[in-house]
């Protein structure tokens, strides 16, 4: 039982928190701009590597590099929008999707070019886990969960208490009506990119802290992010957050040896959990838990 909590549930919560931040941004972008942003994973990798550059150059800890990573990722998202997506705004959502695929490839190529293809890390060294009775928890895991909770709270306040956040929700509800009420659509779109980029950059640093960095790391979590967003109900940020948490737990629990000594699912196929969740959602509840758009 304790093994379940220590080695499966807690790591699942950590992975879930990372997916949640990614899926929330994905859902926000989908809600406001109505297209599936396929470069989202690569933005995440960009954030992780931006933090790596700061760690290497300034000798700071990756936690301290989070604001730098976020600040570096926002302009990339804004540039992709200004250079490419803004020019395609009147096209079909599919065209924007293909364009974002191209953006993702460009970001990934840039990371490969600068940092090379090999795995790397923030070099944090080993810290012994906290022992709370029978519970053993990695300190970095605690920080990741706390960080995700703070990010969720900040997003909640932004969306419900601020004028700009309300405008984002209004755009997601009905873009035409938002225009009639005088919302500066271009400004809301920029804000949405900024929020999504900050969230996904933090998720990237967290993922780098929890595991390793590779330029392809973002593309690898893209499927999970989408599965989480669709499970939650696409366009609904809180749905994305919940979907991310559930999916992260499901992925870790999938390798739990429930029956006999063998894991439920070979760890090599962990990615398959996201796909299975996606397929089951599409079959059983295509609008997602929170009734997406």
């Amino acid at each position: 039982m304790l093994e379940l909590v220590n080695f499966y549930l807690l790591p699942g919560l950590v992975l879930g928190a990372i997916y949640a931040m990614s899926a929330t941004g994905l859902s926000l972008v989908y809600g406001v701009m109505r297209f599936a942003h396929f470069a989202h994973g690569d933005l995440m990798a960009f954030g992780a590597y931006a933090a790596l550059a700061a760690v290497d150059a300034l000798g700071i800890s990756p936690w301290a590099a989070i604001p730098i990573a976020a600040a570096a990722t926002v302009p990339v998202a804004l540039a992709a929008d200004a250079l490419f997506y803004a020019r395609l705004r009147r096209s079909l959502p599919a065209v924007l999707l293909i364009s974002s695929f191209g953006t993702g490839l460009m970001i990934r190529a840039g990371l490969y070019f600068v940092f090379g293809p090999t795995q790397t890390g923030y070099g944090m060294g080993f810290t012994p886990p906290l022992v709370l009775g029978a519970l053993r928890i990695q300190v970095r895991h605690l920080w990741i969960i706390a960080g995700a909770a703070v990010a969720a709270l900040a997003l909640h306040l932004l969306l419900t208490r601020s004028r700009a956040g309300r405008a984002m929700r209004a755009m997601a509800d009905d873009p035409d009506l938002a225009r009639i009420t005088g919302v500066d659509v271009a400004q809301v779109i920029r804000l949405t990119w900024a929020v999504a980029a900050v969230l996904v950059a933090i998720a990237g640093v967290f993922l780098g802290i929890d595991t390793q960095l590779t330029p392809g790391m973002g593309f690898n979590v893209l499927l999970a992010s989408f599965a989480a967003a669709i499970l939650g109900g696409i366009g609904r940020p809180w749905g994305g957050a919940l979907g991310g948490l559930l999916l992260g737990m499901a992925e870790e629990l999938s390798s739990f040896p429930l029956i006999g000594g063998a894991p439920l699912l070979e760890p090599a196929y962990k990615t398959g959990v996201a796909f299975a969740v996606l397929v089951l959602t599409l079959i059983l509840r295509p609008q997602g838990l929170f009734r997406g758009m």
């Binding site: 405008a167 929700r169 009905d174 009506l177 938002a178 009420t181 005088g182 919302v183």
Partner: peptide, 17 residues
């Protein structure tokens, strides 16, 4: 109306500008 916004928030959107 914006269906997912509350009545108050809908009205606040009316004063967005």
């Amino acid at each position: 109306v914006f269906p997912s916004l509350t009545v108050e928030e809908n009205l606040a959107m009316g004063a967005y500008a």
